[in-house]
């Protein structure tokens, strides 16, 4: 149970970063940390004690195997996470070219 709690704390760390940091790069890092905590949480849910990796040798009878369904979900989520991170970085670098800063407060005051 303590691993679930630590995953939740990692999620909170990411949320804290998104809410309090002023730098766009650090906000993106916070979002990624939240994503990572969710991946680990899903993988934890699928884990079975004493289970093998979900690759079955067809010549032998199947033993105890880790649940493959959460792993399939996480697999798609990781690639999507990379794409969204890259999209956010593209937005950040566009804003930097325009306002010459990563500070969201300064971008707010400079707008117009």
């Amino acid at each position: 149970m303590i691993t679930y709690l630590l995953c939740f704390i990692l999620f909170l760390v990411g949320l804290y970063g998104v809410l309090t940091r002023k730098n766009l790069i650090k906000i993106i890092i916070g979002l990624s940390v939240m994503e990572y905590s969710l991946y680990l949480f899903l993988a934890l849910i699928g884990y079975i004690d004493g289970g093998a990796a979900p690759i079955i040798d067809p010549s032998k009878p199947a033993g105890l195997v880790v649940d493959p369904l959460p792993q399939a979900f996480v697999l798609t989520a990781i690639v999507i996470g990379l794409a969204t991170t890259a999209l956010l970085l593209a937005i950040a670098i566009r804003l930097y070219k325009k306002y010459n800063t990563f500070d969201i407060d300064k971008i707010n005051t400079l707008k117009g």
Binding site: A53, I55, L75, T76, I78, V79
Partner: peptide, 12 residues
């Protein structure tokens, strides 16, 4: 479909 990996990992 035989070993760990697949389209995502190999593509990257």
């Amino acid at each position: 479909h035989l070993t760990p990996g697949g389209g995502f990992a190999g593509g990257i």
